[in-house]
């Protein structure tokens, strides 16, 4: 798949860069009840880099993301955000520093696109409502949706909804962005636009952890690719290492199925 071919607006692309933080998982183990769904996962994501997590369903990819922002509390191990343990701060404060984008967008259906973005700005960041709307407007413009600010989610396409969700997360000025199969629920013709948007964020310095089934995206955009299966990291490395020279038999089988 060929990504991003538009150079019409080079100035704008440099208008705003991000200060991504480093992220490190140390022997992270997560469980639902007695069942361990993630075992001893260690992973280092350097500031401003993109790590793609690939693997078959049920391998614990989504659970890993949910452990990073503690939507699900890890059982043991540690998560370091900018070098400090994320498990020692209040979850709400931690999550305000980490953006997350979901497979099914999870936009608030009774809020307009603008209100979706503005809500956390005033209710969490304590901006005035006017300030929050102003900031939200800028954020929507960044994802190309300035003109849809007053539309409700049901009047937007899936691609547009996901871009609102990305704008909503970005407006909080996160240090890390988590993407949980952000394009899996999109119509095929809209996937590329959202992937381009994500690639742009990575290029501008955002630290990103991306769970994806888009192998083309992982190969082109990722600085590091992690292959997970059965709750463990089986193999990790550069896209070239994983896609061109898969060492483990499991990754070889997985790639032969998806490529």
């Amino acid at each position: 798949m060929s990504l991003a071919s538009n150079t019409a607006n080079p100035a704008a692309s440099q208008s705003h860069t991000f200060q991504g933080s480093s992220l490190e998982l140390k022997n992270l183990t997560m469980a639902y009840g007695d069942i361990e769904v993630l075992r001893n996962v260690s992973l280092t994501v350097a500031p401003g880099t993109t790590t793609c997590i690939i693997g078959p369903s049920g391998s614990g990819k989504s659970t890993l993301l949910r452990g990073v922002n503690r939507l699900h509390e890890p059982k043991s191990g540690d998560v370091l955000l900018a070098g400090k343990s994320a498990l020692k701060v209040k979850p709400d404060l931690l999550r305000a520093r980490i953006g997350m984008v979901f497979q099914h967008f999870n936009l608030f259906p009774d809020h307009t696109a603008l209100e979706n973005v503005a809500l956390a700005l005033w209710s969490v960041k304590g901006m005035s409502k006017a300030e929050a709307r102003e900031r939200a407007r800028r954020s929507l413009a960044e994802v190309g949706l300035a003109e849809r600010a007053d539309h409700r989610p049901r009047d937007l396409s899936g691609g547009q909804q996901q871009r609102v969700a990305i704008a909503r997360a970005l407006a909080m000025e996160p240090e890390v962005m988590l993407f949980d199969e952000a394009t899996s629920a999109l119509d095929p013709e809209l996937v590329k636009g959202v992937l381009n948007l994500m690639a742009g964020l990575g290029k501008r310095g955002m630290t990103m952890l991306v769970v994806t089934h888009e192998m083309g995206f992982a190969r082109k955009v990722a600085d590091q690719v992690v292959f997970m299966d059965e709750g463990e990291v089986v193999e990790s490395g550069t896209p070239g290492e994983l896609f061109d020279n898969p060492r483990s038999e499991r990754l070889q089988r997985f790639l032969s199925e998806v490529l």
């Binding site: 991003a4 080079p10 208008s15 949706l145 013709e189 381009n196 690639a199 964020l201 082109k220």
Partner: peptide, 21 residues
């Protein structure tokens, strides 16, 4: 047509940088 949105995206999105093709 969803393609209309694709066009609109290409025209509007300032994030598309083009250097990753």
């Amino acid at each position: 047509s969803g393609l209309k949105e694709v066009k609109e995206l290409d025209a509007a999105s300032p994030l598309i940088t083009g250097s990753n093709t």
